[in-house]
Structure formats: C-alpha cells, structure tokens
C-alpha cells in the first residue's frame, strides 16, 4: 500500500499499474494515520476489466480508484466537478461541460493567450472542490481524465462556468436554480439519503458564495478575453 495526500486527505491506497503510478507521483506523502483506504485487489481489477473489455487493467485501476476517492470525498465536505480547472493569479476557475464540448480546448486557449506561466491547469478533467476552514477551494488530484494535466495544489474557487460551443461568444451569470441541474449532470450522484444530504450541504455553501456563468464560445482570442475579463477575481 502507498500513501498519498490528495486534497489534504490522507489516502492509503493500493496501485501498481503505470498510469496511476505516474499520475500519483506528485502526491506521494507520509503520515501515521490514514483518512481513507482505497484497496482494490488485482483480482477485482481483472474482473472489472473483463466486464469492461474496451478498457485495459491499467485503465480500470485508474478509473475505479478515482471513483472510490470521489465517493469518499463527500465525507470531507468535498465533491468532484467534471471540468477543466485553470488557475490565474491566485484563483481557480472551473469550466464544466459534457465530454467533447471543448472545456480543455478553452482552458488551453487561456494558456495560449495569457501565457503558460500565468494560466496553469490544476486538473484538466476532475478537479475536487472542498470546503476547508470555511473557504471553498479547488484541488488538483491524480485523476485528471485522459490527460496528465494536474497539479498538487489548492486555490480558492473563483467561479464555475458551464461552457457550450457557439459561433457567437457570450457569457452571463446564471441563477442557482439554473446551475443545480447542470452541476448534477457533471458530478457523481450519491444514491443514499445521507450522502446526498452531504453533497447538498456542500453545494449550498459553494453556490451561495461562487459566481456561476453560462459561456458560449468559439476558439478565438476574443472568446478568451470575454471569459477571462468577465470572471476574473484578481482585480
């Protein structure tokens, strides 16, 4: 078993396959007492692989350990948002959408036009949001989807943007009533009442304190300028 610190949670975890070995390297840690244990035996990974023949055992380990982590984070005032998270000048902004819409493309354009030293990808697919000491933070995690773009760091959550493709660029704030169904589409939904209540407790605080937007964008520099200038919190 190995020891990782992910989102300031001590994780005792079993893994051996190359993707997670590489992704988890920056999160290796040492501690006396673990908060959570993720222990999926090799025999279970092999069975899961047979049930999902389009995946390799390596993929299965990466995906199911991630799912286990994100189920557990509910117990630590956190949740997962399927999004690409970008940090600029001390704030993290999350761009969320269904796979294939272009959220990574958009945050990639932030890096291109703002510079890679200014705009850093904290997690390209599944950042964690956690309330710690009464503040809403975004954390990088080893589970970042198909890319290896993630950073072992935390940043205050500056905004959440639901992105769609559009030939005309637009951005406007949305109400919590509009935001909640979208958030539910892009997170893991607990089925048990106690876990659902925990998720709703976290969403209550995060939505009360975070600006939420709807963005329609193409791949132009103007799209980046519009989204950055609208949602930035650093001025």
């Amino acid at each position: 078993m190995k020891k990782l610190k992910v989102a300031d949670i001590n994780v005792l975890i079993r893994y051996t396959h190359p993707t997670l070995v590489k992704q988890a390297e920056a999160y290796l840690s040492d501690f006396d007492k673990e908060d959570i244990v993720i222990d999926i035996p090799e025999s279970t990974l092999e069975r899961l692989q047979q049930e999902n023949p389009h995946l390799s055992v390596d993929d299965v380990e990466y995906i199911f350990t991630g799912a286990a982590f994100y189920e557990n984070i509910l117990n630590y005032n956190g949740f997962l948002l399927h999004s690409s998270g970008v940090c600029v000048n001390g704030w993290a902004y999350l761009f969320s959408a269904d796979s294939g819409t272009g959220k990574s493309t958009h945050t990639g354009l932030w890096q291109k036009y703002l510079g890679e030293d200014t705009a850093k990808i904290i997690n390209d697919d599944k950042p964690a949001i956690r309330i710690v000491d009464g503040k809403n933070y975004v954390y990088g995690t080893p589970w970042s989807g198909k890319t290896d773009m993630n950073l072992n760091m935390r940043m205050p959550l500056g905004g959440i943007v639901f992105l769609e493709r559009s030939t005309e660029n637009f951005i406007h704030p949305i109400t919590t009533q509009e935001a909640i169904p979208k958030l539910f589409q892009q997170t893991l939904r607990p089925h048990e009442a106690s876990q659902m209540n925990k998720l709703l407790d976290v969403l209550d605080k995060v939505l009360s304190e975070t600006p939420i937007y709807r963005l329609g964008c193409d791949m132009s520099r103007e799209a980046v300028e519009l989204s950055f200038n609208t949602i930035r919190r650093d001025k």
Partner: peptide, 18 residues
C-alpha cells in the same frame, strides 16, 4: 428528498427514486 440549496428549493431522487 426536498432541500433548499442556496435559496432554491430542489428535489432529488435517492435510493429507489434514483
């Protein structure tokens, strides 16, 4: 489950409902 989240009344399915 009916809950108020950030001022909005929402209903989410749990257990059998989901």
């Amino acid at each position: 489950l009916l809950r108020t989240v950030a001022g909005s009344n929402i209903v989410v399915p749990i257990g059998e409902g989901s």
